[in-house]
Structures are given as structure tokens and as C-alpha cells.
Design a protein around this nucleic acid. Structure first.
Lengths: 210, 210, 210, 210
DNA sequence: TATGAATGAGCTTTCATTCAT
DNA sequence: GATGAATGAAAGCTCATTCAT
């Protein structure tokens, strides 16, 4: 009971943090703002998290976990491998638009804090890597499963990890493009083009060798 | 003569700014540091740039211009469209490794400042868009030239811009992946895989319709 | 019965306070620390003591009372006035070394809080004076008793208070010296030298006039 | 010229710090107060001293140096060893009363910060020891010089350091007594008594053996 | 013209104290 | 009766920016 209450409050703070860190970035977000957004006093935040950095890490982990679970939810929504990839793509594109989630923006912030000297994750990228690898693993498994179900070409098994990484690289990159270009580019079309290429590689009875 | 001197000094400051903003990010870099790195006094920076924001913008523009000119240099180094794409790719991967340039890191910072409320480029993404579009235009032209030289499939002309955007999206995304994953992934291999796919689309006598 | 329980808990808190205030000083000791050390909740402390100041005062009084009772214990341990002085001296030196008591350090803290504007005892030194005077009175009586027992020179009676005050001054000062000098000085030897001088004054058949 | 100006300002800040740290103690004095007292802005203090601790150390050193130079000044004011001791004593008593100098109070603060866990000088007492040893050395030399001038008993040479340390212990202790007792004790009389005892030890042709 | 000296706004963090449970 | 959760005030410190020289 008591623990639940505590957890609930901690969650509230973290959710506010996810939103604000995503919206304004680590440096431009003050702890006081987060506290206000969470509807608690400034120092209450410090009762739950050692300091701003710890709160940021918690926020990032929380957001990443949610994204990961979304990813897994998709896996169980359909059997078709390509349909799965498509839905993952759509999730990515959607999460970008919906202001409330703020996941992608937060992701850029994580990237910053991983790269920059003095950044929260500088020299601590293993924390981020772990989450990232789990995401890759999820899609990678999806591909391998497609192969074993004979829905995908058997010879991609060897390259499955590379394909997955490229897939995420493209999604991240496209997200970034849209951040800059705004409505100038049609993300859905762009992603469609990429998925077409993917189909050529993944589906049997197509591609070079046939 | 005098103007040249002024320009030279302004350049020195901007170069220092590019380096430091790339290394430590906007928020974690102080004007004083930049001044020191440029070998000038703190307030001299303000003689040349209205404020920190203006300096950041100038630094970003400068770095982008250099990258753009690198891009164009590649175009004139060979005729073969695919070889050009390959060299562009290599340039991207290289610029990431070489600490001195710091372009990629700076690019992430730009992304942050474009997205984040309170960021330098928030609601001013047109500045960034302009540069970006010039880069896209450059590669786009390269593709169209390939078509008109009959080295590329004629039917890609319609999709050339989308292909280009996807190309950049992939490159940016891959760069980000490597920022997080570090040596865990082999960027060259990953890029190679992508270029193979590109070849399938771009080169005549290959692909679906054959 | 109930009152006893209450008193016992109050004592526990005060003892913890004596220890911590002595070790870390008033300003650097938080109420929470004291509560934790006493094994009670933070707000329980406030049930027993109005605020941090009141707790500090109680701690100081408690420690002083204990020292005073130690002093009186010595008086009853031997009849010889000089031996008594010697044992008092030893008690002082010992109490300094034994970390657990922390009395001397606490005494320095009291001194601070008496002197400093904003200090707990600022403009309330009468509280401290009272305790101090009782200590002086104890040793003073000891001297007078020595005179009336004809073990000490009769003419010191007039100066007995001054001698006592100087005695305490020396003991306090020596304690401070050792706090700073650490092992560089041999407190026992230093005290021995002082006691020799005291002997010259106090014992009959010695000194100038004889 | 410029350096002098800087030094002058630094001095002003330190003097304000000596006063306030002496009056209100380290913990109860805010940097802002010191800045205000010195007539400068808050952050100017940080231009001259790295942080509050560094400022405190500088203040202590400054005050100690002044006291030391006062001590040496006394040495050159008369030849007579006992008169010198007397004047040193008077200086101690005087410095205590004059609120402006605040040296003694500051000294108590130093003691606190040396003893207390978390104190500025905790585990750094060597800084304080050095100053203290120079003060002891000065008086010690004074005694030895008295011996070599045949104004003091030759056999005290062996004990000169112990005598000096006891002398300072007494002076410090007496100062503390007066801090607590206020006007209840006559420091001049108390010191007079001690100096009488000293005379018995130091002067030839007096003492036990005669 | 170029500079370092100066500053105040604003941030992170701590802690004595209160109050609902 | 005892407690931990909550808080606001206040402190140390940084830094973009201005200004006199």
C-alpha cells in the first residue's frame, strides 16, 4: 500500500520529467519546473531522486521501457514479418508527431548527453546501449522467426542483425529529417520507399538470385 | 585590408566555437571558453557576435558550409554516380570518427536546438532547412545527372528526391547508431549493405522489372 | 512509568545529539541524522524538543552535567588536594582523547555558539556561565578545603578563585593546543609542568616568602 | 598597477571576510553578506576566490599573519624578556575586546573547523599548525635570547618550548574563559597571576633552589 | 579596438519544520 | 504516540552580458 503510493508519486514525477526533458532538453529544464508539472514541491523531487541527473536517467529508462513494450506489443499483433516491420515503422512515425509522448525528442536529448563532454551519459553509454540492444534484439528475433516460418528468405539469417541495425538507423534518421524538414517531407512515403526495398531483400522469390 | 583582419578574427572565433559547441554542446560551452580557445578576450567575442546565440548560429552555418563544399568536392572527383554515393558515405563515416571536425556531434546539437523549446533554432528551423536542402539538392542533382548520362535507371528520376532524402536519413541515422553503439557495430559494413540495396534500385538491368 | 519511558527516549535522543553535535558541530549536523542515530523518526525529535536549538541546549546541558559529576567523583576519590588537581587534569586530557565522549569538541562548539551572532547561545551565555561556575566552585571548594585541612598554604585562600579560573583556563587552552597540534605536543608533559608550578604556589614551605 | 588594484580588491574582500567569519562564524556567514560588506557583487567574490572555503582559508591566513606581525612588533619594542611576555599578554587580551579585529573569535572558528567532521580545516590542520608553530617559534626565540643575554635562568633553555606552549595554552584558555564569563572575571588580574608564576620560573636568583 | 573586471539572474541542492496518517 | 512525506526558504555557485579603460 505505502510502497504503491510512493511508486505512484515517483511515476508522476518521472512522467513530468519525460515530458519536460523531451520538450526543453536537460539543460533548459529546471527541477523546479518538473516539480511544478508533477504537482509537488521542489524538494519532494529530491526525496525521490538523488539529483537532476538521476531523475534524467530514470526518465530516459522509463521512456525507453515504454517504447520497448510498445515494440513487443506490435510483435504479438500479427504474424506476418513484413506487416510487423510496417507497424513498427508506423509506430515510430506516430510517436514522433504525438507531442505528449515526446519520446523521439527525448531520444535526441539522450544522444546529446551521450556524446557531449559533461553530458549525463558521457562515458556511461552502456546504460543506453543496453536498452538499444534489447530493441534490436526484439526486431532481430522477429526476422529470424520469419525465416524459420519460411516467410522470409533463408539466406538473410546471416545478415539479420545488420539488416535490423540498418532498419533502426533509417527510422532514427528519418525521424531526424522530419524534425528539421517538418512538413516538407512526407515521412510515410519515405518510409514506404524504404520498406519496398526491404521487401526485395527479405521476401523469397524476389531479388537478384531468382 | 582592415576588413580582412576583422574577418580573420571572426573566423578564428567561429572555428573555436565549432569545435567547442561540437565537443560540449551549446549549454555546456561557455563564451569564455570559446574566447580562450580562440585566443581573444571574453568581450571581444561580443564585438563580433551579438550574443551566444548568434555565435552558435554562425558556427553552425560555417560548419555546414564546409560540409557542403566537401560534398561538392566529391561530386567533381569522379563521374560514376554510385562511386560518388560511396564516397559521400565514406565522408560521412569519416567525419564522424575524426574528432577534430566534430561536425556530426555539432549536428546532433543543432537537432536539439531545433527541437527544444528555448533552443537556439526553435521556431527558426528555416535556417537549418536551407542548408539541408542545399545538401539534398547536391545529391539529387548527382542522381539526375546519372540518369541523363544513362548510367542510372531512367525511372528513378521521379523518385530521385525521395531516394536522396532516404539516403541522408540513413546516413544520419547510422551516425547516431554509431554514437551510441560505439565499436559494437561496423559502420562500414552497415553502409555497404545499404549501398548494395541502393545499387539494386539505381542501376539499370537490375531490380524487379528485369 | 509512562514518564520514565518518555524520559528514556528523550535521553536517547540527547545522547545521540551530544555525540553528533560534538563530532560534526551544530551547523553540520542535521536533525535527521540525530533522529537516525537515536533510532527514532525525524518528527519524534520534535515531539521531545521544540526545535534544533532546544535540542542543542539540552545536549550541552546533559554533557556538562556529566562532566560536572565526573569532577565531583574525583573529589571523593582522594583527600590530597594536589592529587585531586592532578586527577582532574588527567580527566581533562583523557576526555579529549576518547572519541566517544566528544565533550571537549562539543565544548568548542558551545564556545562558537556563544560568541557568534546568530549562534544558539549568543546573548544567552548565562546558561553556560551557570554550569561553568559550578565547575569552578567545585574546584574552588577543593582548594579551600585543602587550606582548612592545612594541607595548602593559608594565604592562597584569598586568591583561590583566581587560581581556579587560571587552572581551568590552562586546561581548556591546552586542550585547544592539542586539537591543533595533534601529537606534536605531549599534553601530559605540558600539564605536568603546569602542575609543578601550581605546587610551588599551593604547598606550604615553598615559594617566595618562606 | 593593475596587479595592485586586484590585490587591493582582494584584500578588501578578505578583510570583510575576516570580520564576518569572526562575528558570525563560517556556517552562518553567507558569501553574499561578505560581498555586500566588501561593497562588491556576489560573483565578484568568486572571481577572486574559488569558493567559500578558499575565502575562509585566505581570511584565516590573513588574520593569522597580522597577528604574527603584531607579535614580532612587540619583540622589537623592548629588550626585557618578561616585559615582552607581558606585552604579548596584553596584546592577546586587547585583541579580544576590540570588536573590529575579531581575531580571537575567528580563532575559535578555526578551531571548530579543524575539529569538526566536514569542517573546512578537517584533516588539513597542517595549514593551521604551520602558522601556530611560527608564533610559538617567535616566543621561544624570545626566551632563548633572554637566556643568552643572561636575563633569564640558564636552565630553562631545555624547557623553553614547553614553557612557550603552556604560555599560549594559558592565553588561549583565558581568552575562552572571558568569552564565556564576560565581565565576571578580570582577565588582567588573571593574567597577572600567571605572569607572576612565570617570573618565578624564568628569572634567575629566584625559585626553589635559592 | 580589445579587454578583463564586475554583476545579477537563475540554477541545483539541503534542511528545519509541519502535518496527515 | 510516532512517523515519513512534503515543502519553501536560503545557500553556493555559474555564466551571459555590460562597461570603463
Amino acid at each position: 500500500m505505502l510502497l504503491d503510493k510512493r511508486t505512484a508519486k515517483a511515476n508522476g514525477i518521472v512522467q513530468a520529467a519525460v515530458l519536460l526533458f523531451g520538450k526543453k532538453g536537460y539543460a533548459f529544464t529546471s527541477v523546479e519546473e518538473i516539480a511544478a508539472a508533477a504537482g509537488v514541491g521542489k524538494s519532494t523531487v529530491y526525496d525521490y531522486y538523488k539529483n537532476k541527473e538521476a531523475l534524467f536517467k530514470a526518465a530516459v529508462i522509463s521512456a525507453a521501457e515504454r517504447k520497448l513494450s510498445d515494440l513487443k506489443a506490435i510483435t504479438s499483433s500479427t504474424d506476418d514479418p513484413l506487416e510487423r516491420m510496417k507497424r513498427i515503422t508506423e509506430m515510430y512515425l506516430a510517436s514522433d508527431r504525438s507531442e505528449c509522448s515526446g519520446l523521439s525528442k527525448l531520444f535526441v536529448e539522450v544522444l546529446s548527453q551521450t556524446q557531449l563532454q559533461g553530458g549525463v551519459f558521457f562515458n556511461q553509454r552502456h546504460m543506453i546501449q543496453k536498452v538499444y540492444q534489447r530493441m534490436i534484439r526484439t526486431v532481430l528475433d522477429l526476422l529470424l522467426e520469419g525465416v524459420s516460418m519460411r516467410k522470409l528468405r533463408p539466406d538473410i539469417a546471416r545478415h539479420a542483425e545488420m539488416i535490423t541495425i540498418n532498419f533502426f538507423a533509417f527510422l532514427d534518421g528519418l525521424t531526424m529529417q522530419s524534425m528539421i524538414a517538418g512538413d516538407h517531407i512526407d515521412m510515410r512515403e519515405q518510409a514506404g520507399l524504404y520498406l519496398e526495398q526491404l521487401k526485395d531483400i527479405l521476401l523469397p522469390g524476389q531479388g537478384i538470385g531468382t
